[in-house]
Design a protein around this nucleic acid. Structure first.
Lengths: 175, 175
DNA sequence: CACCGTTGGTTCGTTCATTGAACCTGCGAG
DNA sequence: CTCGCAGGTTCAATGAACGAACCAACGGTG
């Protein structure tokens, strides 16, 4: 998107945002990163995305400061991608889009977003109805819903069967 | 997006939403519709989008119930596209994305979103800090910012120099 | 009546992005 | 020495976007 014909003439901050995160797969990569996915292979399997596209997205997201590439072991050299503050700030937008999608295009309930302090499900603009405060991404508890049907071959969807906080690294059993 | 390789295996309401509004240009078309743009030619000029793509997007948005095609004159037959309730419910997501884009990728201030009742600029999750309520799309006043540099050949950007409420039809002087 | 302009499109050849399969690399384990 | 794993790159084929040209229904003007 950034090359060739872009949204540059738009005079609009929404267009600026879409320049960065508007390409196919990009928002799903960020969603997974917020869910705690960090490794190339976990993104690959969970998203079912072509490798070339995943590499391209991870590169531009790193360049734009939304993910950070971090060496987690030498020998063999292995990197992981961790979401930055700038990426975390996309949480309200992602949540709002997800809520809209659920209300209009999903029949079964797949996941709940709850306030980690009290377990209450978040309201329509991201607040905790019980506590009366807007819940930051780090205090969101992700719990599975009844409609979930995980792929047994996918470590990420298996790990997401347990409740977990956003941003915390996912414990995938790469056995 | 809807055909061939889609996000169908994602088990996620965000993916469902992106199936519908995740294609290139789609969210910008909806933004314009919320701003009050209703006519084919206004979308065309303001977005700078290829005609074939605009036709395709308007068709799928109509099919998905986000826009409604409405005859506004016979002879010659002329239709306009009006945003529906389902489209209006995308406002929180669009606003959140625009706020993120402004904070990270725009230097100049292009537009303000204000509460029409009191003129206060909306807070980061769409609330009015003065009134303490979340402001629905219909009560948002769009006002131009100092960084705006409108294209004189574009009726929409000229019309947006005046403050206007969201959803109200844009008064474009097609002279 | 001939012609022009406006609105709202469709068609079509070129260019660009996405896809999926195959291949490559560094390294540890058996 | 060979296997397997993580994390990639390369490449041919397909599909989507681009932009210019064309079409059509009508109203207005000379």
């Amino acid at each position: 998107m950034a090359l060739g014909k872009d949204y540059a003439t738009q005079e609009c901050s929404l267009a600026s945002a879409l320049e960065v995160v508007g390409e196919r797969w990009t928002l799903l990569v960020i969603r997974d990163a917020l869910y705690g996915v960090r490794r190339y292979n976990d993104f690959l399997v969970h998203l079912g995305i072509p490798r070339a596209v995943l590499s391209a997205r991870l590169r531009t997201l790193t360049e734009e400061g939304i993910l950070e590439k971090r060496r987690y072991q030498d020998s063999p050299p292995r990197d992981e991608y961790v979401v930055t503050e700038r990426g975390i700030e996309l949480w309200p937008a992602l949540r709002a889009l997800a809520v809209w999608g659920r209300e209009h295009f999903t029949e079964r309930r797949l996941r709940y977003f709850r306030h980690v302090d009290c377990g209450t499900e978040l309201g329509s603009y991201g607040e905790c109805p019980a506590c009366g405060t807007v819940v930051p991404a780090a205090d969101v508890l992700l719990t599975p819903g009844p409609g979930l049907d995980p792929d047994p071959a996918d470590p990420v969807s298996r790990a997401l069967l347990k409740p977990k906080r956003l941003l915390e690294p996912l414990e995938t059993d790469h056995a």
